[in-house]
Write a protein that binds this DNA or RNA. Sequence first.
DNA 1: CGCGAGCTTGACGTTGTTCAACTAGAGTGG
DNA 2: CCACTCTAGTTGAACAACGTCAAGCTCGCG
Lengths: 229, 229
Amino acid sequence: MLLSETKQEYSWFRRISSQFISEKDFDKLEKTSVKLTFKKGEPILKQGGMPSHVVYLEKGIVKFNYENETSKNLILTIVSAPKILGGANLFYKDNNLFSLIAVEDCEVIMIDSKVIEGVLMDNSKFAMMMFQVASEMFKKSVMNFISLAHKQKEGRIADIILYLAEEVYHSNSFLLSLTRKEIAEFAGCSTENVIMTLSKWQNEKIVSLEGKTIEINDIDKLKYISKIG
Amino acid sequence: MLLSETKQEYSWFRRISSQFISEKDFDKLEKTSVKLTFKKGEPILKQGGMPSHVVYLEKGIVKFNYENETSKNLILTIVSAPKILGGANLFYKDNNLFSLIAVEDCEVIMIDSKVIEGVLMDNSKFAMMMFQVASEMFKKSVMNFISLAHKQKEGRIADIILYLAEEVYHSNSFLLSLTRKEIAEFAGCSTENVIMTLSKWQNEKIVSLEGKTIEINDIDKLKYISKIG
DNA sequence: CGCGAGCTTGACGTTGTTCAACTAGAGTGG
DNA sequence: CCACTCTAGTTGAACAACGTCAAGCTCGCG
């Protein structure tokens, strides 16, 4: 975790925000925020902690991790930059429901909750936009949970591979930065099950595995597996 | 489904809203909304339909139902009056993600989305409140799904019975308006499993069943089952 | 070179689903 | 008033899915 120069880019966030708030309000956000970098595996926000900041993920990939007292972890969702995270925490008020953990090296900008809340209060269109961003992520988690709730393991793993290809790596061939264990935590099944399913698919020529790279060869078959569950 | 007189009560909603919006804005909402009653089992909003209204549930109990093409239904959550529903749909923009179905006879007020959106735009504090309400419900669903994801059936059914007692019926002894099948859809397991678990608990004197009434005798043991999963 | 973390495979037992059969109550029409 | 049918609830047995365990493997790093 490392502080960098004060002059920041915010490229995507600035572009989006400029449609809704004044340059002056944006400066207010910019001045009170800090840019941090996190190495793979480092926690950005801790479950149970107070939500003091809204996180804007400028670069990298993070997982939303739910840690359970008794049993194992659960990954709620995985997202890649650029994205506004932890907006949910803005509206929940409660302690953070989950941890944010870097899956790949990340650059994030921590925006002070108090400050952004003030800007939201003065700019209802900006507030609506922020809500929608948060809602979009809610929706994705809910859809993932629905899949989780009534599909068999194979359908769920198919969902996750498709999700990673489309929404995270933006390619049908990608270098997987997650371990099998993490995929299992995302799919809500055991590591062994993930491995079995993936190598079964390799035999059936649906995917190709080579080290940490995954290539989807037959996306239609994968979608079919996802569909029938 | 039945239209009643235009003069409405809105008691709870009015009280809450009055902290955030003017009498004039509230009148605007009131004038463009209609009060409807739904009988047990009737759909209030349909999954896939366009979200034209925000639903304020004045009386009754509704389930959030997710219908799947291939397999069975899934109940996302169950809530009792008074509560603002479908606020999520306001922010999602997409088609309704789920159906709202009356579990008991309901009185609801349908507030026109366009109108409430206008009021939200002009009153950012009101918008924040609405979003917090939506977030609260979202959080409950997520917590339920987390439970669903890594607990055994027994733990999940315990969660649901506790949730119904605390959040829906507000009593440890209640007349269950859900069928065993619906509990199963909520818990993400088979009807038989719900039945087996409940009668097992009856033998162990944790609950008493008599027809459609359920009484929780040993809430600590139930919480323990919920905890250990 | 050795150690540990992540990965892989197979065997085994547990959990939960499915199926089939039966009961009870509610509603319907002759 | 009595078959009838329909739905909800219940039970048990057979079977499939999944997790756990145990063992061996590979690769990167000190």
